[in-house]
Amino acid sequence: MFLFPIVILVIYAVLFVISPGKVGLAIKSSGNVFLNMIIPLSLVFVIMLLINLFLKPAAVAKFLGKGSGVKGIVLSAAAGIISTGPIYAWYPLLKDLKEKGAGESSIAIFLYNRAVKPFLLPVMVTYFGWLYVVTLIILTILASVVVGFSVSIFPPAKRK
């Protein structure tokens, strides 16, 4: 997690020796980017807090793999959108649900919809505007349904 910023700082240090003036400009440029992000980042924290307060992982577990047809698609998509944390933390639950008979398409829809991050919307809107963000979210959800349907066509992985 810290390796990347450390590498960048080392690059800054090396470039500072070569061209201190330009490094100063680079820091100023980065500072401007940060300043533009203060308000959206503050909103990100507030939304993160609200999600943690009102949306429990257990609620996601309730949604996922339940229902069939349109209801199943909507619930899986909703579970993907509201789920938080790294994806690897969800694999034990997904494996468990799969063993219990949850459709592969439901799980695929869940995974694809994790691309929609409600708490990051302020940053996204700041850079791209509401129209773009809403369009992209709708297309992502529609694409997840196509992916979910396509995954169910292909043969599942063989288990030993």
Partner: peptide, 16 residues
């Protein structure tokens, strides 16, 4: 941390 690294990289990109 990664976000800070990205923003610092953008600064370098901007100038160099």
């Amino acid at each position: 941390p990664i976000l800070i690294g990205v923003v610092l990289l953008i600064g370098l990109f901007d100038v160099f």
